[in-house]
Simulated assay, not measured.
Amino acid sequence: MKQSINCKSIHIHRGQNHLKWSNRVAPVQTINSGDIVHFDTIDGSNGQITKHSTNDVIHTFDISKADPAFGPVYVNGAEPGDALKIEILELEMSDWGWTAIVPGFGLLADEFAEPVLKIWQLDPALPYAVFKEGIHIPKRPFLGVMGVAPGMEGEFSMIPPLDTGGNLDCRYLTVGSTLYLPVQVTGALFSCGDGHVAQGDGEVCGTAIETSLKATLRLSVVKNQPWIAAPQFQTPSRKAAVAAAEVEADKGSYAATGIDSDLLQAARKATRNLIQWLVNTKGLTRAEAYMLTSVAGDLKITEIVDLPNYAVAMSLPLNIFVGE
């Protein structure tokens, strides 16, 4: 996923990271609007999980060390009321990744009490990652964390997203997409991290295919954009973003719905119902099905106005199932 980019080299290395959002974190680089920056990031476990790890590592996993952000970068000319425009130019993947069920974390945390870790071998020559025989997940890398410093004083966790961005876990922010973040402090103080190979809308088990990414981003100041009060983004056309072969292989999708007067419970029901479909029709264990819905399934609100009940769907693209 490389392209020719002519620019002066501005690099943020793996040692230049932080574990809290704060406007008191000192910038590691100062750039001009329109400069291109290369970020060398480490995966969301912050190195706690390696390609040789087993389920045992989940017992000692320290979530306070998770999702390190690399930076921050001070952008000259950025002032409160402006927007920072982040163009995603290039994302280079590692040759391995991981997905885990961490007890106490995830949409169905109360139903999955045992730790499970899956290590993925990512063949650079293949456009997909192999979940298991007969199930291929298309590679669509993106940074789960992209944010600027909050205007509020204090330190804020890396886990929940903020109006200034952060742990957005938005799978649409891949190469060719553009993210706009509201600037709340002078210089913006942009950071990024948490590389993913693939993820569904919702990331329901709490993790995607987590990996280390090398990211090339263009950072530009857009003046006087006070109406951008939270992250906004633009994606390329589907024709530009999806390989023609994948479009031709599109087999549609299968979805299970959840109906409830509580939107969160409707989402839980939809996820649970699709897991049962996978167990009954695809021969997966419940843990495997839960992880598969996290890396490839999409949660959608299909109805929100016919109160008191909401309708949520969890769908899977059927072209991930290959062979017979």
Rank of each mutant, 00 (worst) to 15 (best):
N6W: 15
C7H: 10
H13L: 06
G15H: 09
K20N: 11
S22L: 08
R24T: 15
K51H: 14
H52N: 15
I58D: 13
H59V: 12
T60Q: 13
K65V: 04
A66P: 04
F70H: 04
P72E: 02
G77L: 04
A78P: 06
I88P: 02
M93H: 06
S94P: 11
D95F: 14
A100E: 04
A109K: 09
A113I: 09
L122G: 04
P124K: 00
L126V: 07
P127Y: 03
F131T: 04
G134F: 01
F142Q: 02
M146L: 05
P150K: 07
G151F: 11
E153S: 06
E153G: 10
M158D: 03
D163Q: 10
Y180M: 08
L181A: 01
Q184E: 11
T186L: 14
G193E: 02
V197N: 10
Q199V: 11
C205W: 08
C205D: 11
T207Y: 14
T207D: 13
T207G: 11
I209F: 05
T211A: 06
S212W: 05
K214E: 13
A215T: 03
K223Y: 06
N224T: 08
A230W: 12
F233H: 09
P236E: 05
E248F: 13
A249M: 09
T257Y: 13
S261P: 04
D262R: 05
L263E: 05
L264W: 07
R268N: 06
A270P: 08
N273G: 03
I275G: 02
L278Y: 00
L284F: 05
T285P: 13
A287K: 14
E288D: 08
M291Q: 15
D298A: 07
D298I: 06
D298K: 07
K300L: 09
T302W: 00
T302Q: 11
I304S: 12
V312H: 00
F321D: 13
V322I: 07
